[in-house]
Amino acid sequence: MEISGLISAIVIGAVIGILGRLVVPGRQRIGVLWTIVVGIIAALVGTAVAEGLDVADTEGVDWAEWLIQIGLAALGVAALSRVKLRR
């Protein structure tokens, strides 16, 4: 992976993580770095799921892929926030 690919993965992961965090109601007790990490993981897993469902490469904006990624990020943020809350 080239440096430009790594930087774009971080930026897209941050956007997905922030959007996922906005979807979850209430206050999340995780930091910005955890939000980015959850977003990157959600983006990678969401792309794989979208490819499996054959909705990844469509004409124009891949809305289904974005929704899957944001949904996974919201689940990840909620789960991580709940784990952090227990501690």
Rank of each mutant, 00 (worst) to 15 (best):
D57K: 09
G31V: 09
A48V: 13
V45H: 09
P25I: 06
E59S: 10
V83F: 15
G71A: 07
V11Y: 01
R21H: 11
L19F: 12
R21I: 01
G46W: 02
I36A: 12
V37W: 10
S81K: 05
I70K: 02
G71L: 06
I68V: 15
A43I: 01
T35I: 10
L53C: 02
V11G: 00
V37K: 02
M1C: 05
R86L: 15
I40L: 12
V49R: 03
A73N: 04
V24L: 07
V77A: 01
G17P: 03
L33I: 15
Q28N: 11
V23T: 11
L85K: 15
G76I: 11
A74Y: 03
R21N: 12
L72R: 03
T35S: 13
I10D: 00
D62K: 05
I40K: 03
I36S: 06
S4V: 12
L67C: 12
I7V: 14
G5S: 06
A74N: 05
V55R: 04
G13Q: 01
L85W: 14
R86P: 00
R86W: 14
D62W: 08
L53M: 13
A43V: 01
I41L: 14
A73I: 05
V32H: 09
A9F: 01
S4N: 06
L33A: 12
R87Q: 15
I12S: 00
T47W: 14
L72W: 07
A43F: 11
E59A: 09
I16N: 00
G26D: 13
I7Q: 01
E65P: 00
G39R: 02
L44E: 10
I68K: 05
I10K: 00
R86K: 13
K84I: 04
E65V: 04
S8D: 02
G26F: 12
I3F: 15
L67A: 14
E65R: 15
I16R: 00
I41E: 02
A9H: 02
S8N: 01
V45M: 09
M1Q: 09
L6S: 02
Q28E: 07
T58Q: 06
T35R: 04
I68W: 12
V32D: 09
L44W: 11
A50Q: 03
A14W: 05
R82M: 11
A48L: 14
V55S: 03
A42D: 03
A74V: 04
V61M: 09
W63C: 00
G13R: 00
L44G: 10
L22Y: 13
V23I: 15
L44S: 11
A64P: 11
L33P: 09
L72G: 06
L6G: 06
G60C: 08
